[in-house]
Design a protein around this nucleic acid. Structure first.
Lengths: 243, 243
DNA sequence: CGTTCCATTGAAGTGGTTCAAGTACTGTGG
DNA sequence: CCACAGTACTTGAACCACTTCAATGGAACG
């Protein structure tokens, strides 16, 4: 059963900029189908030019680059509402790979329709640029995290960001959320070794601040977690378009 | 004397996607003026919403974020041809600040014309998205550099990238280019301390690979520098649009 | 039940940090 | 013309946050 854009469970969330009926019906038209992929599957390959673009509807994944040395850098985590493949859409190829961590459902768009979108629907073209700018903004933040913060600060920051993003799309049950990644994934995202990531997680557990176990993250002291992460407890989560 | 888009010294460079006469004349129209700023001046402030967008015509600058802790993370270096302020253009505010390191000349565009551009010139709108995607791609690379590479690799990578970018816009004189930044700027870009950056520069000098002194970078052994940076010596420099 | 994958923990080593001091250059005012 | 102050760069020394190596435990699975 394919989800209609009109009744998309994400669209009503306040993080997403609202759309009127006309706009939604165009999105429905732009959407060429739906895709389910299994946990562990690779959705896009670095250097490839995918004929399709996606929006995550449900499930979680990750974007990553494989370095010349064979190591992996996780660029960010993919949650419902995230747009995937814009790089391949406008440049000729993807700069990173995308894997599904859990089973995922995705809205599918045809790359060949992208030009039509720019020509006929400037508001949506603007939204795509907006999304890309948001992504750029977040990557700038991540760069600062890797460049200037120490282990516990990085982990705390990651937890706060993930929790906020998950809240925005309704994945949290008050101080808790599903977080189905491996410790190695987090380590690769934060530029830390697996061992040190593990020891840092233990520290947060011992501090009674956050507990990540069995694919589930419990935030025990959000205020303290923010303090460690050098974030205001009421830091704003910017609104963005949903494509 | 204002530079005409038609005779823009950058446009003829092969890194930039070509434009036909019509397209150039629209760009001329979109360009609302030219701005000269002094070395050391701040062009845009993090969190602000600039009424103007820019393209660097000449001179160099840097984008950076100031962290909660007061430290600085340099996001990247600005060279001629770089577009500045897209984030403020589409989101409501900039995610980073922009300083001029040398005196700079910039093409100025009015933010209020941005919507008109999306509506009437979908090719240019597409180009803006393209630029944003390129930026995103480069930030992903930088993230991998900070996350996974050691000091000498980071510095070597920075030198190769800067040299390639400078070559693309005609700033190099065979194995040499102007590089008017401070060691602290490079340190803040690479997530290293000033002291360690300095010692790493010395190492590259002692190895006879690269020599950065008095605002001038000499590449003494490009192949070896690439090897240290874990890059192919003939790695491609992607073409991009010039706005 | 052996195998495999992930999480956990200890121990040793190191690439990087911070602290501290000194050099070199440049502009400024007396 | 010199003294001085300010800024950038340089170098040594001590320390430590993180890495790598190594070994173990627990859960899932055919």
């Amino acid at each position: 059963m394919v989800t209609k854009c009109k009744s998309c469970p994400l669209r009503s969330r306040p993080v997403f900029a609202p759309m009127n009926a006309n706009e939604i019906s165009f999105m429905q038209c732009f959407k060429s189908g739906e895709l389910d992929i299994d946990a562990g599957a690779t959705l896009m390959q670095e250097g490839s030019s995918s004929p399709q673009l996606f929006t995550a509807l449900s499930g979680m994944g990750l974007r990553y680059k494989t370095l010349e040395s064979g190591e992996r850098q996780v660029i960010n985590f993919i949650l419902p509402g995230d747009f995937i493949g814009l790089q391949a859409g406008v440049m000729q190829e993807m700069g990173h790979s995308v894997d599904a961590t859990t089973r995922m459902t995705l809205c599918v768009f045809d790359r060949k329709d992208l030009w039509r979108l720019f020509r006929d629907h400037p508001e949506r073209a603007f939204d795509l640029t907006w999304l890309s700018a948001v992504e750029e903004h977040l990557l700038g933040e991540s760069l600062a995290v890797l460049g200037r913060m120490d282990g516990i600060e990085r982990v705390a920051r990651a937890f706060v960001m993930l929790f906020d993003r998950a809240s925005a799309v309704g994945l949290t049950q008050t101080p808790s959320m599903p977080l189905p990644y491996k410790q190695q994934d987090l380590a690769d995202a934060l530029g830390l070794s697996l061992v040190h990531t593990n020891k840092t997680l233990k520290k947060l557990r011992d501090l009674g601040v956050a507990n990540w176990r069995n694919g589930h993250l419990d935030i025990l002291d959000y205020a303290e977690l923010c303090r460690i992460a050098l974030l205001e407890p009421d830091h704003p989560v910017p609104r963005r378009p949903l494509i």
